[in-house]
Amino acid sequence: MPQSDDNNSAEVPKAREAEEQPLVRFENVVKRYGDNVVLDELDFNVLPGQRVTLIGPSGSGKTTILRLLMTLEQVDDGVIWVDGDPLSHMYRNGALVRASQKHQRGVRKKIGMVFQQLNLFPNMTVRRNITEAPVHTLGMSRDEADERAAELLEMVGLADRIDEHPTRLSGGQQQRVAIARALAMRPEILLLDEVTSALDPELVAGVLDVLREIARTTDITMLAVTHEMGFAKDVSHRVLMFDRGQIVEDGPPERIFSEPREERTKSFLHAVLEAG
């Protein structure tokens, strides 16, 4: 890991060894939209169980990282690895070639995502929103999926709304269902893309509490793009500060937030805390 001295200093759950294989690895990843370079030869690793918060000004490429990992976008150059397997590419005759859709489906089943825009399926009840994917893509039985849905809804505090229509729930409740839906797939990596940004202010706390609980009770690896600095501080092991498609600063939240080294980090944090 060449780009930063404190990459490995990020606090990792104690049971894990620092030299173990990264769960996520970006290797010289380039992403462009037309002439606009969003990610510029980006290199970074995320270890299993690490909870990483991506911060930085809008347009700095944070969300693009999550979208590339979820295969909603494809890299222009470089390779993304998940748990030792290439995600953006696959091996053919010993060489790395562009991944087929089928290959990506195989690798991305380890990844779940919660979106800023909620994206619950309006044609399904809360129950079916959560159970449909495990039944159809993991081959789980209806009963097992139902049971799991009930447990997860219990955890997000919506057990009594299981047969409700998503449109009958508040934005915050919908987002909690979306979190349950992502977890129902038992992902190893959970991507959180500004999950509270579209919510009314009074609904934000409920969603963040659920995420804190997940962080406390599971060892799921998280990559979160957020403007909630308090949440980032509480939950993450590591903060990555982005600007113009590059990592500007990388370190544990205590250090980044209290004594940022880079000028760009300082001014960004200043601006965010001013606004908040």
Binding site: M70, G112, N119
Partner: peptide, 21 residues
């Protein structure tokens, strides 16, 4: 578009995504 993306995030196959979502 978000509905397609949620379908991808839940790893549906394209036919399932079309039929179910």
């Amino acid at each position: 578009r978000g509905q397609y993306e949620a379908g991808i995030a839940l790893n549906f196959e394209p036919v399932q995504r079309m039929r179910l979502v």
